[in-house]
Design a protein around this nucleic acid. Structure first.
Lengths: 246, 246
DNA sequence: CGACCAGTTGACGTTATTCAAAGCTCGTGG
DNA sequence: CCACGAGCTTTGAATAACGTCAACTGGTCG
């Protein structure tokens, strides 16, 4: 029931060899996933003669689907099961940033020609459809640049969400505040952070207003930040970066 | 420097009346934001004669842009400044789930005909372009259903990210574990949660393996969950929901 | 059988929350 | 102009929550 077969560290990545239930074009009619309609248009294109056809993979619990930093060539559509998306946090540790389930698509960054931003791993035995990004590119081609621009914006939203989780919701209160200040002030010299109330900080960092205040006060005493008007601070980025690593 | 003018609670929502620098179609050539190219295609459509033209709004710190639950009719493209996105958490409190800055687009759910999922508020004096979703719908029309399906998937990713933040990264360790179990097991009777190691829990919830273990042990002693094989638990959803509220 | 890994448990230290009370700042109205 | 009050910030002391370190358990696999 635990990890199955050859999984132990980072050896096996899902490839056509990973025991796909079907090879080649998957029959989407009759598929429970069909109702979502993602592939309807794809099939109109007669995808079967593409170099990388759509196929379905069966994964055991613990099987990796793709890895952070790897070249993203496929989008995955989850037919059944649960996937965890992990990201290496600035502190070096791994952080699960979210879970995805049936009906979700993951690895969408493939459509933008980016690298995978997470390591995706099956949490249970599961089933996914792998859709090569070229298959969708073909369609995106006929539509305007706008479509790609829109997807880029969506991606940015997801990216910001991940940042908030890895940067601002982990580590000690001091580390979180430091990261927030750096994030808002920019990393350069003479960077200032402006406009944040203690309440905003608290709400962003999952801490209380009091601790936020205490940490800011401590930073000021230590000279790590310097007040310049109401809630406007000059940052000593070097020292802050130090603190940011928990 | 704090909140400006009439802002006090939830009175004013950015409407054409909110002191837009331009009325009507914005000149995107010569705009710093132009390089992102979002509007290039839109202008080819001769948008000026649309019922709701694109225009630019100037906001003061604290000004609301849109509110959670409101009908989403416009996407906003941030030209300068910082916006906070807040969400009402299950505990009733407000949680800032992320920040967005120049170049980001927010309120993308408008393209899917949904309600706004957050309350968006300016953190500093700022400038945004408001793009009525109908303007983009027009384009999405010419492309296939696939485009909308893709956007729906992107949206789902963002949604999951928000859930992880509001459900799994706030409140006491007990509340987080309870919410995670409910989230994975479903809310129905006889629901089971399966496949999570203590390490996964810890990584998801920003707690340590030991606390995760302790909380699970406590839940078992209390009869709130019942072990059914390795890392497989039957949930007493009623009691768990109780605990989930911090 | 022994090594290993995930889970458990305890004792202890640290950190953050809680509750309460001041201090500050700024706009309002006398 | 000054006093006043509202809202935000700061600070303190007591408490509860969580993390850390370390030992121990039970199952799995070679």
């Amino acid at each position: 029931m635990k990890m199955s077969g050859s999984i132990n560290g980072k050896e096996r990545i899902a490839m056509p060899a990973t025991a796909p239930a079907w090879q080649g074009a998957v029959e989407c009619d009759g598929c429970a996933f069909r109702r979502f309609g993602l592939f309807a248009d794809l099939h109109a294109e007669d995808l079967a003669q593409q170099p990388f056809p759509i196929d379905r993979l069966s994964l055991a619990a613990g099987d990796p689907l793709y890895q952070e930093g790897g070249r993203a060539r496929s989008v995955f559509s989850i037919v059944g099961g649960v996937v965890k998306l992990e990201k290496i946090s600035p502190s070096g540790g791994r952080r699960i940033v979210r879970l995805h389930r049936s009906g979700d698509a993951i690895g969408l960054e493939a459509l933008l020609g980016l690298d995978y931003e997470h390591t995706a791993t099956a949490l249970r035995p599961m089933s996914v459809c792998r859709i090569p990004s070229v298959a969708i590119d073909e369609l995106g081609h006929r539509s305007s640049r706008l479509v790609k621009q829109l997807m880029a914006r969506w991606h940015q939203a997801v990216h910001q969400a991940d940042l908030c989780l890895t940067l601002l919701s982990t580590g000690s209160a001091r580390a979180r505040v430091a990261r927030l200040l750096l994030y808002l002030g920019g990393e350069g010299r003479g960077s200032v952070c402006d406009g944040l109330t203690r309440e905003d900080m608290a709400s962003l960092l999952s801490i209380t207003v009091e601790t936020a205040s205490r940490v800011v006060a401590e930073f000021r005493r230590r000279g790590v930040i310097t007040a310049m008007g109401s809630n406007r601070f000059l940052l000593a980025t070097g020292a802050l970066r130090e603190i940011a690593e928990n």
